[in-house]
Each structure stands twice: as C-alpha cells, then as structure tokens.
Nucleic acid binder design. Structure first.
Lengths: 244, 244
DNA sequence: ATGCATTTGTTACGTATTTCACAATTAGCT
DNA sequence: AGCTAATTGTGAAATACGTAACAAATGCAT
C-alpha cells in the first residue's frame, strides 16, 4: 500500500522489496557472461563456491546478489547453469532484442558499435546520428548517418530506448535533450561531462580519461623501476594475488 | 616509522594517513576536467557550493575528497581555480607525460588510442602490440604493430607503466601475464573477464556490454511508451532532475 | 529410512562511503 | 580594529555495501 506523498524513486517495478544495489546489477552481467561460457563448456551445475574460485567474486556475494530477485539454487547441489543463465538474462532484459541508436559517428562511436559482441548479446543498432554535416548521409556499417536533429522523427519508427552517446563534450548536453525528447530512456555516455536528464532517464558514464587518471594515480612517484624489480617481487611473494 | 610485519598495502606513498577511497580518485578526475573548463572560461575562484550546482556532486563530498590530500581552499572565499586544477593534476600524476602501450589493435583498440583527448591529457602512446600475425608489421597511427610476445623486450626502452588491454577475452589472461613481466603496473582492461595479477599491479575494468546490461535492466518491462509520454512527464515536473 | 556431507538463502555483523552539521577561518565593510 | 557574511575542513551520524555465519534444504550412501 503506497502512502500518499511517498517518493516512488525505487526504480523499476516498485514491489515491496528493496531494489537491488547497482553493484549487484553490474555483477549480474558478469555472472551472465560467465554462465554463457560455462554452458558452452557443457557444465550442468555450479556452486557459489566454484563461482568464487573461477571469477574471484565472493561466494556469499554471489548468493546475496541472486537473492534480490528470487531463489535459483538447490541446497546441497548448486545452480543449474542454463537455467540461471536464462533467468539472469530475463532480469537484465538481455533475453530479448534491444534496439540501440548511436549518436556521434566519430572514431570511438564507430568502433563501439562495430564490436561483434553487441549482436551476440542481442543489442541491435538501428540508427546512427551525427551533428557534423560532413558525415551526414555517409554510410556506417550498414546504416546511413542521419542528422541528429531528426532523431525524434526517426525514432518514432524504431522506438529504441537505449542510446550510445559518443559526441564531443560541448555538444553532449544539447544532444541529450534531443534524445530525451525522442523517447530514449537510457544513455551510455562517453563524453566526460555530467548530463542533466529527467529522473525517468538512466545514464551510465564511461570515461576513458577518468579510468586512465585513476590508474595514473596509483603509479608510485619514485623513479620508474624497470621490469625486473617487479619480477623480483613476484618471486618473493610466490606469485599471484588471491586464488590459484 | 614502519612497524616490522605491518602490511604495506595502503597503496602509494604509505604515509600515516588513510588512503583515499577509489571513488574519491574517480571524482578527482571529474573535478580536474571541470576545473580545466572553468579556467578556460577565466573563472578565478569557485566555492564547493558552486561546484555542486554545476556538477551535481555534493559540496561536502567535494570538500572531503580534497581533504584526503591537503587544504586547498580559503574559508569565506573558496578555491583558486588554476591552483586547484594544477594540484589535482599533480595528485593524479597527469601533470607529466604518461607513456601508454596498447595491446590489441582491433577496432576498439585503434579507436581508443586515436581519441585526441589522450594527447591533450598527456597520455602518450609509445607502442602497439597484437597477437594476430595478420596485423603485426602493419602501421597503426604512426606506430608499427608489434608481436605481443616481444612486449617485455620492447618496453625495456620505453618503460611505459600503463597498458590498455583490448584483446578478446580468451587471450586476455595470457597477454596480462606478458604485460606484468614487462613491468606494466596499471592495466585498463576492456575484456569482460577478471584478470589475475600480482597485487603490485592495478587493474580497472571497462565493460561495454556490462554497462549496456545495467541500462537494459532499468528499462521498465511495460509496453514501450512513445516519445510523447516522456515529454508530458517533463512538462509536469517542471523539467530537469536536480539543479537549474 | 536415517545420517552425513554439501550448499543454499538470509540474518547479523563489519567496513566503506556519503552526508550532515558546526567550529574555525577569512575578507570586506563600517 | 571589530563585526558580519561566507565558506572551508572535519568529526560524527547516516547510509550503502560486502562478508561471515548458520539454520534449513537436498541428495547420496548405507
């Protein structure tokens, strides 16, 4: 029973249960890919302990992640690989074709949508847009690059709900507004800026430079060691961190 | 003074202070880019409240993030934009040229290292490797693609410490072992697998499919709304979520 | 059929991160 | 100089997330 005035920001399908944490969703995608591999290797069942051994993710974490959604396993036995794989796919809605549009047909955008894993995971590119007149009309893969100002009109046919945004930072917000107006509900943003969107729209940011900067931080400031000193450390410690 | 037997896993420059959380480092990169923009716009000083207004990041969060490193601002005044920008750059070590190598000269890898933002942020690609014999010897940008088995030998000259890993999942671990042996200390991994590395090596994972899957989850299961319903919601609520 | 070894689902605990709240500091104004 | 308004830096409170621990469930062996 919903109390009037309560804020219904609990994300999709507001049941009674607490919504799954975002890190859980991220791991779910990892589990899915892992299970796909297992199923190809004809593995029938797997235990959470075995998942930990093979992926490095804590077994309790794995079980808890799944518990946000339903009960999947049999005590004493484990999880049926194919069943779990398919049920996770349903949760993430990657069991059905998902239409994508790309905005920004530059180097990065073209490469991203050219990634063959996309089709394999049923993400389907249906249209490509750009705001650079030099590019409009040219082909990208099997599609024609269209003027981004037409995105609303064009998406009335496709009804894609996910957009990949790979435009320069300066145009990112402007393009985002067009996407929102075109019915896009989820944006994968590669521009290193915070987008303003209505709270009905989900954004995930991927920033290449940010990732590199975090890595850069962790490099010690001392004079660069040559490769050998690392090897020596390896020998000292045995070798790998964690697990076998 | 270091107590014997203490575990020195506190990341770089083990001072007495607690190490900054990783989320703080990620935001630091965001602040840096934001400050670069401000400095180009000739803004002299900025307050944490104004940062919140413009980036959406909580003002206390901003101040606390900075407090892990030093005191940067003047009470009653705020932060000097140029000074803060440069000090964050020093913290992240993006004030100096950082050498990078790329492993995996496919679509994605080529596009990533072709991104002009890299040079602007002083990340310098010094070598490209692949394990596909068809590609070895060919040029990529101004470099020749080399056999990845030679990475140790070649990196003895360059002494790059950061690697971008954009190879298929199956070869990712094998290549990683070569990189570690070659003195690489930080890896930006685009393959959707968990890499095993010694704990002297830092890994950041970027998975395109994982990001899309998380977005896909958030799409409600109900029949797809057309673009107009979203617009109606926009009108109802005023318009944007948060801030002006 | 009963007991044992295994493994789940979940509650309780611990750690990490974010947010709040306020004393301390600064610049400008009178 | 002293007062005021603004804003920082930070300990304490709140929240989110991860890990451990264990009762309940299952299949297998006897």
């Amino acid at each position: 029973m919903m109390i009037v005035g309560e804020v219904p920001n609990v994300t999709p399908s507001s049941n009674g249960k607490p919504p799954p944490p975002v890190p859980t969703l991220e791991r779910l995608a990892t589990y899915h890919r892992f299970l796909v591999d297992l199923s190809h290797a004809q593995v029938e069942t797997i235990s959470s302990a075995e998942v930990e051994r093979q992926t490095g993710i804590n077994a309790a974490q794995f079980r808890k992640d799944l518990s946000y959604f339903a009960q999947f396993g049999k005590p004493g036995v484990g999880y049926n690989v194919v069943d779990l794989r398919d049920r996770i796919a349903r949760i993430l809605k990657i069991d059905q074709d998902q239409k994508l549009i790309l905005v920004g047909a530059g180097n990065l955008g073209s490469a991203l949508v050219g990634y063959p894993g996309l089709k394999e995971h049923r993400f389907n590119l249906v249209a490509v847009f750009d705001n650079n007149y030099g590019k409009i009309g040219r082909p990208l893969w099997n599609l024609e690059i269209m003027d981004v100002t037409r995105v609303k009109e064009v998406n009335q046919q496709h009804r894609a709900r996910i957009a990949i945004l790979a435009v320069p930072s300066v145009s990112a917000q402007m393009v985002t507004d067009l996407l929102v107006a075109a019915g896009i509900r989820a944006i994968l943003n590669f521009a290193p800026v915070m987008l303003r969107v209505p709270d009905t729209v989900f954004v995930r940011n991927v920033s290449f430079l940010q990732e590199l900067s975090v890595l850069s931080y962790h490099l010690s400031a001392d004079p660069p060691f040559d490769g050998l000193s690392i090897l020596r450390e390896l020998d000292d410690h045995g070798n790998m961190a964690e697990t076998d």
